[in-house]
């Protein structure tokens, strides 16, 4: 009989701990989740940019979700240079064709994939971008070539609304 009682008590303990743990988790999660991007931040998900005034060889920087986006109108030489690179030479192999839907326009997040600085245009050993913080070099396709950054600069979701307007996001 006493054995039965112990079993019952153990069951009650386990059940209490389990319900308690669920209760604690239910209270902790809102406390954690409140720090995630809120509805107003998520609402600013897309930006439209008029690129009609950008000359070939020039780049503009626009702000999207608080981050700079580079929109570069590349010259034929820059496109040729980006497409001539062998995949074996790239730390993060990716074809230029996959990065620029329209080869003339390169649209990418102007954020170094190392620790988030903004790289400088027309700098570095590969005629693309150079990050002043920790010395990452990117080519004319925004791909990492040298330095501590692990991956190429990210391409955001974007589309041409018409020939002059790009919608990012």
């Amino acid at each position: 009989m006493s054995e039965k009682k112990t079993e019952r008590r153990e069951f009650l303990f386990t059940a209490t701990y389990a319900v308690g743990a669920v209760g604690v988790a239910a209270v902790v999660w809102p406390m954690v989740d409140q720090m995630n991007p809120d509805a107003s931040v998520k609402a600013l998900a897309s930006t439209e940019v008029d690129v009609s005034s950008v000359e070939p060889g020039k780049a503009i920087t626009v702000l999207w979700r608080g981050k700079p986006v580079f929109i570069k109108r590349r010259t034929p030489e820059e496109i040729a240079e980006a497409r001539a690179v062998k995949m074996d030479d790239l730390p993060d192999p990716q074809k230029d064709e996959d990065r620029a839907k329209d080869p003339e326009w390169l649209v990418m997040l102007g954020v170094c994939t190392h620790l988030g600085c903004v790289p400088l245009n027309d700098k570095g050993d590969y005629n693309g971008w150079f990050c002043p913080c920790h010395g990452s070099h990117y080519d004319t396709s925004g791909r990492i070539r040298k330095g501590p950054a692990p991956t190429n600069m990210e391409i955001p979701k974007y589309e041409f609304v018409n020939s002059n307007i790009i919608k990012i996001g």
Binding site: V32, M35, N36, P37, D38, V41, R65, G66, K67
Partner: peptide, 17 residues
């Protein structure tokens, strides 16, 4: 990182926390 920021970059939510 986005949880720390409360957004997609360092911004007002980051400052207040």
């Amino acid at each position: 990182v986005q949880w720390l920021w409360g957004g997609y970059s360092v911004d007002n939510p980051t400052l207040t926390r």
